[in-house]
């Protein structure tokens, strides 16, 4: 209840401020001021974070070209303490006035972000929310619930509520739990869909290969494998190939990597029919939204969820970015 109250108060306050800004006092003055935007993201250690780094640099290139009075500094960190140090450097050395941060961990990065905000830095948090939402001005994220819900609905509909499903999970995290809970919530409404088992394969191709090999040994009749990640789907496909199994009708990945989207677009693998988008492009959107709002002296809405959508042959073109590494 109080959560809701606080939320709506914040929205009201935010809207009020935005209206006030737009109404003109200060808006015009701020627009002429240069904006120094810091971007703090995880280093490229997985296909997905590789995509994050690439899209952040794309945003820097495009936006700095379009707005000469905008300076963007991109920093990558390989763990939470390193990210906290970089954040300090961004504030004290680079003297940023706006920040877009994709935190490694919610809890560990909350205090460092609060410190930055105290120095009047405008903070946009991406993907993982901070434990204290007051530390952020805006929150932009992908939709993890839809990441689990969409494949479940798709499978339930396509197989008329009757199928044997095995699933892979990522790394034990809240993010993975949200996806898994959304997936099982939909499936629980379809009593004839059996989830035979689910095991962690760490968002890793090799682990996915091994787990799938063992699933194929254990279960003789599988209709669908929910790989829950496009990297893992690659390992799953290889294992099915090797076992020469024909009972598996479909493999559903997740995130919309360019390899999978291309496969759907070309129809080159009958096992890959659809995917759900969870593109690292949201860091690009977050930087662009923040930079443009700051240049105009405006505020962003407190929460902005970038929807995940079902990718099929019909719309795959919109999700295909051949230059991105992911």
């Amino acid at each position: 209840m109080s959560e809701v109250a606080r939320f709506s108060r914040r929205v009201l306050l935010g809207t009020g401020l935005a209206v006030a800004m737009a109404a003109g006092f200060g808006g015009a003055v701020l627009a002429a001021d240069p904006v120094k935007l810091g971007v703090s993201i995880p280093a490229a250690t997985h296909g997905f974070t590789g995509g994050i780094v690439w899209w952040a640099n794309e945003a820097k290139k495009e936006l700095e070209k379009a707005h000469p009075n905008l300076k963007i500094t991109v920093k990558t960190a390989s763990n939470a303490p390193e990210q906290a140090n970089q954040l300090q450097d961004l504030v004290t050395v680079t003297k940023i006035d706006s920040l877009v941060i994709f935190p490694f961990e919610s809890a560990a990065l909350t205090q460092p972000v609060v410190q930055a905000k105290k120095k009047n830095v405008y903070v946009t948090v991406v993907d993982r929310g901070l434990t204290d939402p007051n530390a952020q001005d805006a929150y932009i994220a992908g939709d993890n619930t839809a990441f689990g819900r969409i494949p479940a609905e798709y499978i339930a509909k396509k197989y008329n509520g009757k199928a044997n499903v095995v699933a892979l999970r990522g790394i034990p995290t809240t993010l993975d739990n949200e996806r898994w809970d959304a997936f099982t919530a939909v499936m629980s409404k379809h009593p004839d869909i059996k989830i035979l088992d689910a095991k962690y394969a760490n968002w890793n191709r090799d682990d996915a290969f091994k787990v799938t090999q063992d699933f194929l040994t254990r279960f003789k009749d599988i209709d669908v494998i929910w790989a829950a990640d496009d990297d893992m789907a690659i390992g799953v496909l290889k294992a099915i190939d090797q076992a020469k199994r024909t009972d598996v009708k479909e493999v559903f990945g997740g995130a919309g990597s360019k390899v999978m989207v291309k496969t759907i677009l070309d129809g080159s693998n009958p096992l890959i029919q659809a995917d759900v988008s969870y593109s690292p492009k949201f860091i690009y959107d977050a930087i662009k939204l923040t930079a443009e709002a700051r240049l105009k002296g405006e505020k962003l809405p407190a929460t902005h969820i970038i929807p995940s959508s079902l990718i099929t042959k019909e719309n795959a073109k919109e999700f295909y970015f051949p230059d991105s590494p992911y």
Binding site: T45, H46, F209
Partner: peptide
Amino acid sequence: PRLGSASPTTGI
């Protein structure tokens, strides 16, 4: 030849 690819998670 197993996966035909190498990524930053290979061999972790």
